[in-house]
Design a protein around this nucleic acid. Sequence first.
RNA 1: CGGGAUGUGGCUCAGUUUGGUAGAGCGCUGCGUUCGGGACGCAGAGGCCGCAAGUUCGAAUCUUGUCAUCCCGACCA
Length: 479
Amino acid sequence: MGKEKKLVSEITSRDVDFAQWFTDICTKAELIDYSTVKGFTIMRPYGQAIWENITKSLDDKFKKTGHENVAMPMLIPESLLQKEKDHVKGFAPEVAWVTHGGNEKLEERLCIRPTSETLFCDHWAHVLQTYRQLPMKYNQWCSVVRWEKTTRPFLRGREFFWQEGHTIHETPDEAKAETLQMLDIYADFYEKELNMPIIKGQKTESEKFAGAEATYTIEAMMHDGKALQSCTSHYFGDGFARAYEVKFADRNNGISYPFQTSWGISTRSIGAIIMSHGDDDGLILPPAIAPFQIVIIPIAQHKEGVLEKAAELKTRLESAYRVKLDDSDNSAGWKFSQYEMKGVPVRLEIGPKDIENNQCVLVRRDNREKIVVSLDNLLAEVAKVLEDLQRSIYQNAKANLDARTQSLNTMEEIIAASQAKDGFIKTLWCGSEECEKQMKEQAGLSSRCMPFGEQDNLEGVCPVCGKKASHRVIWGKAY
RNA sequence: CGGGAUGUGGCUCAGUUUGGUAGAGCGCUGCGUUCGGGACGCAGAGGCCGCAAGUUCGAAUCUUGUCAUCCCGACCA
């Protein structure tokens, strides 16, 4: 009965089989169910509640920075998709097509949106007339379809839910600033609310979004050392605007094309939460997005006064937190395990002995520490525990990131390191696509990003070709 | 799209080698006793064995086809 005893036997151990562990959590914590169509999942109430908390938080931030929500159609005519050639090339292989309406074959087939740049451009071409209307800063919450060959819950589905922001601006500088502002909002959200350390950077040419001039990314490291691209923010220049003929009368009464951005975060972020914080007993949810931050478990609840007291505590806590009281017939032990599996940050136990002593027991999900607290300063104690838990899970993830990140100079070192364990490898790079290809072939690594703030002091050579370096790149294996 | 595996109550699986009309554990329903780390007893419900042809007196079991899922690679929020 040591501390090491695994309480939740249904979940595969994380170190035995990380992929299986991940899938187990997705289903056992009741986040999702598989649907009958491959690659499509059903978001169950608990998973959806997490996603809703994510959307609420971000939607608020988007609105505070002047963005408006819209709703675009789900279908894109083939001819519309075709207008920007890089974009088509990037997405055409993985779109789903609608070819019939009822029994009638359509004149032109329609694709289910894989992303909505083309739709936004088409719309803007209709409504934009003057620089006075700029900027237009739009966002939509929706799902998109990409016909992926291999799929995994949250990480890669044929349909996934996300938010896509699309903006147009009068000047390149303004659009670039928007791109970076949104990246910062995401970064801040990941760090402060999902309690995950992240790396901001720019994608290389070969990894950037189809049709973009520059793609910025947030890369996070999962517990197993693999990278997860956690969101992206793109600067398009006026490439799409020209292709779709989005024009406006500028300040000099000439015709100009606006400069454009797009940025998105998806339900993949839930995968990131699972793989960053979870342990062998299940999920560990960051309090900011947990469907409920506190679960109250009454002990010996049939006894006089216990349920009443539990309900009273619930009312008190609800002033500041999302709280669930489980007064179901299941045993206390069963409930303990159940909510550990679901990652509820704090458990509150209240039983006859506690009531006698005007106290309750708080148990932290991350380290299972049991804290006896007086009911008189319950709210303050809960606040302290939640704060500490956030700091603690962040630091654990940070420790993993640090332990698995190394700077290397030669191919021998890189190949040896990538075979030894998964993680991030930082190197100089000459900037050529060929060397990226070689890195993939020789070391099995893809470029994750060119991290911000680390593009100075580029004295040295590319480890692949030996030519003078022009960038510093983080390499890794990606989900 | 290549390589491998698997389809049997809600879930995990046994039964297939040697054809004879389907089982276990968990879960679920009802009642009672329990309740500070996944409780127990009793009584129940639930499956034309992925689908379709074929062989046979008879198919979960043999044959052929087909569909789906999972794992490993190549491609990707």
